[in-house]
Simulated scan of single mutants.
Amino acid sequence: MNGQLHGQWYRGGTSKCWLFMGDEMPTDRAQIAHALTAAFGSGDDRQLNGVGGASSTTSKAAIISPSAIPGIDISYLFAQVGIGRSAVEFTSNCGNCASAVALFAIQNGLVRPTGDLTTVRMINENTRSVLAAEVATPGRTVPTDGSETIPGSTMPGIPVDVCFEGVDGTSTGELLPTGKPVETLAVGSRTVRVTGIDAGAPACFVAAADLGMTATETQAEMRLRLPELIGIRELASAAMGLTLPGEEVSPAVPKVGILGRPCDYTTTTGERIDASDYDIAVRMVSMFDPHPAIGITSAIAAARAAFVEGSLVRDLIDPDRLDPVDGHALIRLGTPVGVVACRVQVDSAGDVTRLGIRRVARRIANAAIDLPEIDLAATHPESTLPLVG
């Protein structure tokens, strides 16, 4: 039976994602995956028969519902839609898309503007992370356009500060799922040091030096090392308890990337970045390709790891950068597109309570998407997330 999805296409940060209301989608995740792969044209590596953008950062979706949890405005289920294969990953979160979700909530009347800044409190159904996004709503108006830019895009958008709260162990129950700040993995003939951390989303950071790298490599240079990095992701997934022996490893989690000390490098747009401009170099993998910038959940995990004694980030970063001023520290990450800063809030006991990154978002289109052979008769107006504290 043919069906139709009514969705809105948004840019959030350096990603693009289709956003749908919960009552537009089928009841369970298998049906949602079926609908999304049809809508995106996932079976084709160019996604020509659908609305997908044929890259990991533009083949994303979120399903949004009002929340029944006290103090939470909305819940959303994030979906990483396959490219060249009809599959959907529901195992992670996307902070870039979270900025779009917050703007969507205001533009679609789920949250009313309360002042020049409006806070949208959200819970991510994939990881159960709680996010608070501050959206610019000048004069308590619903914004339609903005003029701010971020590293990775010269195109302007509406400013959104995305903050993660209570990130420790949201997916696995442990901040350090391997039980150690640094784990050693045997990858072919190499032995590499990794920090596996669950902060906002599970991530595995590799010491670039162990791979003969600097973490300032170009996209082309990173692409040559993908087999090794994907192999490390598979080993780390088992070490972090994300997969059992014989289970297929998710291409989405753990997030995997390399870390190095600051050194001069040139961004993908030709901008020269001086070593003094940032605190740690990071290059990440997105599914099966180098990430063109950095995923926000990866940035959050890296910044959180800076405050874990013995972690690779902690050992590579200048200790002075970890001293909070007025309860905040700023961790600057050197990425392929430039410096991305993560603000870390620390309480009087030295514990990390909140991490945030500045994004921009805008609505691109409002559309009805025709679906072949999809039964959309059953819908779920309520979030399926259990009530949690």
Rank of each mutant, 00 (worst) to 15 (best):
L312V: 11
D277V: 05
T243R: 08
T218H: 00
S276L: 07
A220P: 00
E228A: 14
E217D: 13
M284A: 15
T268E: 11
R332N: 09
G310L: 12
A305I: 11
S250C: 09
V285I: 13
L259F: 06
V313N: 01
A239R: 12
I280C: 02
L316V: 11
R314S: 14
D289C: 12
P319F: 04
G270N: 03
G246A: 12
S286I: 13
P336A: 12
A305S: 15
I317G: 04
A293M: 09
V253Y: 04
A303R: 05
D315Q: 15
R283F: 09
L330G: 00
V313W: 01
H328I: 14
R304E: 11
I317H: 00
L224P: 00
M213C: 09
Y278L: 10
A239H: 00
T218R: 10
P227E: 02
H291T: 13
T297A: 13
A239E: 10
A299H: 04
E228Q: 15
M240A: 07
G212C: 04
D315Y: 00
G260K: 01
G295M: 10
S311F: 05
D274M: 12
I331K: 04
T214E: 13
T214C: 03
R332P: 03
E247G: 00
V253S: 03
S298D: 14
V256G: 09
S237V: 08
A306Q: 12
E248T: 15
A299Q: 05
D318P: 10
G295Q: 11
A299S: 15
T267P: 00
E221K: 13
H328D: 04
P324D: 02
T218L: 05
A239Q: 05
A305V: 15
